[in-house]
Simulated assay, not measured.
Amino acid sequence: MNIQQTQGRHRLGTAIAVLMVALLSACSSAPAKDTSADYESAAPSVAPDDDQNLGSIYRSGYGMTLFVDRRARQVGDIITVTLEEKTDASKSSSTATGKESNISVPTVTLFGRGVTSDGVPILTTGVSSDQDFSGKGSSTQSNSLTGSITVTVSEVLRNGSLRVRGEKWVTINQGEEFIRIKGIIRPEDIGADNAIPSYKVADARITYSGKGALADANSMGWLGRLFQSVLSPF
């Protein structure tokens, strides 16, 4: 095997290694989705019934609150989150600069007379510069999400706030669509109908996506992500 063949194989191996790194980077650019375990409903803890007094009207742990509303306040309680998400953002910029410079040197004289060729000065020097720049940019984005999802209280924090989470799946023909939400709410913000708007959920994480044939058709392939990545030479 001669030196040229060795160098050719080395270059081919290097090109394949660079391509593999680019493909891995393009595939890893897709954001990781949360697992379903993060949004499973929380069940209330059930205390063991040690009192087996079956002959009495009153039983411990089975009291009824006649004068307290049924708003969510404990782990496992159900609350409805009304999705009222709408964002509008726009940005524009414009820049213009200009610069003009002129430098001239007087005609050089020799022994009191200008240096000429056929009567035309040949040692006259002058420099001029003119620069102009103009740039414009604009960006507009709008998002809207409406609907409702019922979730459960997963944790009661020490300050009284409630951590909620939940998901809703809908199967339609060739695919599935789901809405997931989790965050922290204040009991004071819960309405009389045991509902709260989504803009009052702190640290809210709302996901609306789908799975199936329709979702796969709307997603970009790995080769397309490669050409859209920062490693693309085009």
Score class of each variant (00 low, 15 high):
residue 3 I to F: 11
residue 5 Q to P: 00
residue 5 Q to Y: 09
residue 5 Q to E: 02
residue 6 T to R: 09
residue 6 T to H: 13
residue 8 G to D: 05
residue 10 H to P: 00
residue 11 R to G: 12
residue 17 A to C: 09
residue 21 V to A: 06
residue 28 S to I: 06
residue 30 A to G: 08
residue 35 T to D: 13
residue 35 T to H: 01
residue 39 Y to F: 13
residue 39 Y to G: 00
residue 41 S to I: 07
residue 42 A to M: 15
residue 44 P to G: 06
residue 46 V to Y: 13
residue 49 D to P: 01
residue 50 D to N: 10
residue 51 D to Y: 07
residue 52 Q to H: 13
residue 53 N to E: 08
residue 58 Y to D: 06
residue 58 Y to E: 08
residue 62 Y to H: 02
residue 62 Y to G: 09
residue 63 G to C: 02
residue 66 L to W: 12
residue 69 D to G: 07
residue 70 R to N: 07
residue 70 R to M: 13
residue 72 A to M: 09
residue 74 Q to G: 15
residue 75 V to D: 07
residue 76 G to T: 03
residue 78 I to V: 09
residue 79 I to W: 02
residue 83 L to R: 03
residue 83 L to D: 08
residue 85 E to S: 07
residue 85 E to M: 02
residue 86 K to W: 09
residue 90 S to Y: 13
residue 95 T to Y: 08
residue 97 T to Q: 12
residue 98 G to S: 11
residue 99 K to I: 09
residue 99 K to A: 08
residue 100 E to W: 12
residue 100 E to P: 05
residue 100 E to V: 07
residue 102 N to H: 08
residue 103 I to K: 14
residue 111 F to D: 15
residue 116 T to N: 02
residue 117 S to F: 14
residue 118 D to A: 04
residue 122 I to T: 09
residue 124 T to N: 15
residue 127 V to T: 09
residue 127 V to M: 11
residue 128 S to C: 05
residue 129 S to C: 04
residue 134 S to D: 05
residue 135 G to D: 13
residue 136 K to G: 03
residue 141 Q to P: 00
residue 142 S to W: 02
residue 142 S to G: 07
residue 145 L to N: 11
residue 145 L to G: 05
residue 148 S to V: 04
residue 150 T to K: 02
residue 154 S to A: 09
residue 155 E to P: 06
residue 156 V to L: 06
residue 157 L to F: 07
residue 160 G to P: 04
residue 162 L to V: 01
residue 164 V to D: 12
residue 164 V to F: 03
residue 166 G to S: 02
residue 167 E to N: 13
residue 170 V to C: 03
residue 173 N to G: 04
residue 175 G to C: 03
residue 175 G to W: 01
residue 175 G to H: 11
residue 176 E to W: 10
residue 176 E to Q: 15
residue 177 E to A: 10
residue 179 I to V: 15
residue 181 I to F: 14
residue 183 G to N: 03
residue 184 I to H: 14
residue 189 D to W: 08
residue 189 D to G: 12
residue 189 D to P: 03
residue 193 D to S: 14
residue 193 D to Y: 08
residue 195 A to K: 13
residue 197 P to W: 05
residue 197 P to H: 06
residue 202 A to I: 04
residue 204 A to D: 11
residue 205 R to G: 05
residue 206 I to V: 05
residue 210 G to R: 10
residue 210 G to L: 02
residue 211 K to N: 03
residue 213 A to K: 15
residue 215 A to R: 15
residue 218 N to Q: 14
residue 220 M to Q: 15
residue 222 W to C: 01
residue 224 G to M: 01
residue 224 G to F: 06
residue 225 R to V: 02
residue 226 L to F: 05
residue 228 Q to E: 01
residue 230 V to T: 04
residue 230 V to M: 00
residue 233 P to D: 05
